[in-house]
Amino acid sequence: MANHSLHGKTVLITGGAKNLGRLVARDLSAHGAGRIVIHYHNPADAEAAQDTVREIEHNGAQGFSVQADLTRPGAVASLFTQAKTLAGAPDIAINTVGKVLKKPILETTDEEYEAMFAVNTRVAFQFIREAGRHLNDNGKLLTLVTSLLGAYTPFYATYAGSKASVEHFTRAASKEFGARGISVNAIGPGPMDTPFFYGQEAPEAVAYHKIAAALSAFSPSGLTEIEDIAPYIRFIVSEGWWMTGQTILVNGGYTTK
């Protein structure tokens, strides 16, 4: 039977320099992962990426960082190639990158639409494809989506819409990669207490989101905390391997399907 523990495993995480990606890198290294490659988008985040690498290494794992704009042609394939050169073929691939836009459909420009789908859909598809090419047998593949996939709401058409495609990418990939023992899932957090959330929301919307989940009163911020999500990710990419092809909404009762 395949070994599904994290011990000694090689991990690739996009968006690993900050916020949830950083916490996941720290968490997996603390639970036995052997080598972790983190990707970051903005060259200005190089120091944050190195801080994450130092935290990974403090936990006893080897850490590496790679900067790349994944929307550029060939960039996702190059990321996997670089990761393999640095740390060996990955056992676990986690894509946390995303772009959010809150705007009415009638006010959304073609340029904004293209930018949203470039990050949330095309990069996600390419990441899944390259993971299928490069992951070791019995690997784990996870993509971050959004709990808005279970919402009935205006203004997030391009955000939720561009993430919705990933739900089917996940199902298809789980069927196609399953013969190699690779599990493929997506996780959709609720609104998280990170700068990614606050940049799009007016104060009154923030106030609503902080009371919208069934468990909001038990959260320090009223929102999903990144510390709430990291344990689910750890489980899905280790002992939770038997679950595959699923999109799991983890949000304290914010939305459901």
Rank of each mutant, 00 (worst) to 15 (best):
I38W: 04
S238L: 03
E227I: 11
N136Y: 05
M192G: 01
F177M: 11
E55H: 12
I182M: 03
L249F: 14
R180L: 07
E111R: 12
L70R: 08
V166L: 02
A87I: 09
R180T: 10
A115F: 02
F235P: 00
E201C: 15
L23V: 05
H58N: 14
A131I: 03
M116V: 06
S5Y: 10
V11H: 02
E225A: 06
G253D: 02
A44C: 03
G178R: 04
F196A: 13
D193V: 03
E107C: 05
T143W: 07
A68M: 10
L144T: 11
N120P: 09
G253W: 06
S219T: 12
A115V: 00
G16Y: 07
S65W: 14
K163Q: 09
V100T: 13
K18E: 11
Y254L: 14
F125G: 02
P220A: 07
A25F: 11
W242N: 14
V184D: 01
H4A: 07
A131G: 05
E239C: 00
N251E: 02
S5N: 10
K99L: 14
Q82L: 13
G253T: 05
N138L: 10
F80C: 03
Q126Y: 13
L141I: 08
N19H: 12
T14P: 04
V119M: 00
G190S: 02
E55N: 06
L86S: 10
A172T: 12
S78N: 14
Y254D: 07
H209F: 15
L106H: 13
L106V: 13
H7N: 13
R35M: 10
A151Y: 04
K140C: 13
G190K: 00
A186F: 05
L141Q: 02
A83N: 00
A2G: 04
V24F: 05
I13R: 02
E55M: 14
I13C: 02
P189I: 01
K140S: 15
T244I: 11
I128C: 11
I233Y: 02
I233T: 02
A217P: 06
H58D: 15
T96E: 07
A48R: 11
A214C: 11
R22V: 08
A87R: 05
P195M: 03
K102C: 10
T121C: 13
I13G: 01
T247K: 07
V119D: 00
F80R: 00
S219Y: 12
W241M: 09
L106Y: 08
G34L: 09
E114G: 09
M116C: 15
L223P: 06
T121I: 07
S216R: 09
N138K: 11
H58E: 15
I56S: 03
E227W: 11
P220C: 08
G132N: 01
A75I: 10
A124W: 05
E112H: 06
T153S: 14
V37W: 01
V237G: 01
N95R: 04
G63M: 09
